[in-house]
Structures are given as structure tokens and as C-alpha cells.
């Protein structure tokens, strides 16, 4: 089997693992991780496709697409973790209030 096909299949497998993982987890961090894995899988397929001609330089178009894809995926991750963090903090504050602690920040830290 050609090297590109080996990597493309690997990418496909990563994508499947990530996609199925995304729908079988409930923790937001796990789900964000899963979506990153699925994303890496798709990008690996693209990079593999660029290297099908064994000689000469690889196809630069998929490379450019992958660079864009990485930036989009880090943006989505940053937004996702920002939301997850805020939710966790609201929960921590609520917990601190219900247990009578006065400082919500401290409540989050010592819970």
C-alpha cells in the first residue's frame, strides 16, 4: 500500500473515533477534545491526498486548506473552553453561596 493511503486511512480512523466520541461523552472538555481529534483526522486525510504523486513537491492547495482548518479549529476550541470555564465558575459560585461561603472566587478554588 502507498504511504499516502496508509496515512489517509489513519486519518479516517481518527475522524471516526473523534466523531463517535463526541456523541458518547457528556463532559464538555472531553467533547471538545473529541471534536479536535475528528478535526485532526480530516486534516490528515487532506495532507495525505496532497502527497499522492511520489516525486516532486506535494500539492500546495490542500496544505493551504489545512492551515486554514487548524486556525478555525483552534478558534472553535478557544470559544468552547471559554464557555465551559464560565459555566464551571457559575456552578462554583452557586455552590459556594449554597454552602454559605462569602467569596465566590475562593469557593471555586477550595471546593
Amino acid at each position: 500500500m502507498n504511504p499516502w493511503a496508509v496515512y489517509a486511512l489513519s486519518g479516517v480512523a481518527m475522524f471516526s473515533v473523534g466523531l463517535v466520541g463526541l456523541f458518547s461523552h457528556e463532559h464538555p472538555v472531553k467533547r471538545i477534545l473529541a471534536s479536535n481529534i475528528a478535526g485532526s483526522g480530516v486534516l490528515l486525510v487532506l495532507v495525505a491526498l496532497a502527497r499522492r504523486e511520489p516525486t516532486g513537491a506535494p500539492d500546495p492547495v490542500p496544505h493551504a486548506l489545512v492551515l486554514t482548518g487548524i486556525v478555525v479549529s483552534v478558534s472553535a476550541t478557544a470559544l468552547g473552553v471559554a464557555l465551559a470555564r464560565r459555566i464551571a465558575r457559575i456552578d462554583a459560585t452557586a455552590k459556594a453561596e449554597s454552602t454559605g461561603a462569602s467569596d465566590p472566587e475562593a469557593g471555586g478554588g477550595s471546593a
Partner: peptide, 18 residues
């Protein structure tokens, strides 16, 4: 709103990746 946003993100992302 935060829950809704995170939920939407985590359904829309796999959609885009597919």
C-alpha cells in the same frame, strides 16, 4: 445561554467536519 451556546457549538462542529 452558556449551556445553549456550548450545546450548539458541539453539534455544529461535527456537522462542519463531516
Amino acid at each position: 445561554g452558556l449551556d445553549a451556546g456550548l450545546r450548539y457549538l458541539l453539534f455544529a462542529l461535527p456537522g462542519s467536519l463531516l
